[in-house]
Design a binder for these strands. Structure first.
Lengths: 232, 232
DNA sequence: GTGTACCTGACGTCAGGTCTG
DNA sequence: GCAGACCTGACGTCAGGTACA
């Protein structure tokens, strides 16, 4: 059951990062005012897709290529189940996938742009070795142990007692590789999240403005209406 | 000069948790419909306060007690250099402080609630130390290197050569305490952030709904208006 | 200015999920 | 279903900032 470390053992010193990197930054500009219907639908679709949490790749596909690959799911869905402060109902509905940059200025113009990793190749190197042994053995530090009470953390040293150094080395290298990749993934993930949040903030601002404008307009119209009514 | 990092591993059983825990969950309900002006002002004030990044405590104070202690400070702030993919107009305005839960149902009723920590008191342990290097990259140190160019990082081993074990122990305990606190703080911070994001998502949803409703209303009104106009 | 406490962005790791072959 | 790759939430740590004494 779930021994944690124990990396896979199909020797595969492959280092390719296999990035999907499709390279067409879409640029949809739903112009000013309020082509609401369109925008809304788009929104809905996106949200819907995101209902199943993970993998922005899918979304990317859908939006870039065909859409609605099996759609038909638009019940209440997200709709913010949390009705009051104490809730904690935590169904998470991201609203806008992190890949999608939805920049917009105050006038209401919105620009949806998709970005992709591009793997900035920060510095390539990333040396890092954990728990490199003081005395030659190679354990690896418990780092965090997080919350999870029952965690044990087998150290790799255990291996070396019964296996040839070769095997150990192999395993450790594999582990290293895995960590490296995960490290990078984490970085990317953080980036996306940040973008997502910024996007949200942006969206709120825009919507507020729109709202204000609409209210204003409504007020004016009503006034006009009333006065006319008076005259009549 | 900052206090140095003094890594070490003397597990000491100290775990006093000094918590501030102020205990008044405020509950402001700006009732339904759209008292826009009020809401907006509130919004603005909050945002303004948040322009200087940190410390939600202040905000707490302001909202709970008096307000506007010295408003007028919205500079550009850091602006976070990420401009990779493209434009990124990135004006970041947090909109809502994380402490504040601003839940609202679709009708427009909003509930502002402030929450605070409650501190779950986790477990201790944790050894490990990082080292940080090239440009923001953070590595694990193999326990004793401490090379790190610009970084100070005195290790305890060095110390122990010249100090009494007492001092070392003292220092280590201090470190441990610090770490413990920070650990907890981090947890709390994450919690707030999460809340904040959820709040944002919520707000977006609400605003969208409002928007839609307004548009609808506007349309109706216009129609009515036109028909009346026809008649006249 | 100094020192201390606290807050938060970013990091790397783990755990556990999804997707795909 | 299984195995591997990937994604992401949560963790603890560090670094650097703000607030306050």
């Amino acid at each position: 059951m779930e021994e944690n470390e124990r990396t896979d053992n199909s020797g595969n010193p492959q280092q390719s990062i296999v990035h999907v990197t499709l390279n067409h930054p879409i640029q949809v500009v739903t112009a000013g005012g309020l082509s609401e219907s369109e925008e809304l639908e788009e929104e809905r679709r996106r949200r819907e897709v995101l209902a199943r949490r993970p993998s922005y790749r899918k979304i990317l596909h859908e939006i870039a290529g065909d859409d609605q690959l099996k759609g038909d799911h638009h019940d209440e869905d997200s709709n913010s189940g949390l009705s009051d402060t104490g809730s904690e109902t935590n169904l998470q509905q991201p609203v806008i996938p992190a890949h999608i940059q939805l920049v917009s200025d105050t006038s209401g113009v919105q620009t949806i742009t998709m970005t992709n990793s591009t793997s900035p190749t920060p510095n390539g190197s990333t040396i890092v070795q954990y728990a490199q042994s003081p005395e030659g053995q190679q354990y690896f530090i418990p780092v965090s142990v997080a919350g999870t009470p029952g965690q044990t953390y087998q150290l790799t040293t255990a291996n070396s007692l019964q296996s040839s150094p070769n095997v150990t080395e192999e395993a450790s290298r594999k582990r290293e590789l895995r960590l490296l990749k995960n490290r990078e993934a984490a970085r990317e993930c953080r980036r996306k999240k940040k973008e997502y949040v910024k996007c949200l903030e942006n969206r709120v601002a825009v919507l507020e403005n729109q709202n204000k404008a609409l209210i204003e307009e409504l007020k004016n119209l009503k006034e006009l209406y009333c006065s006319k009514d008076d005259v009549a």
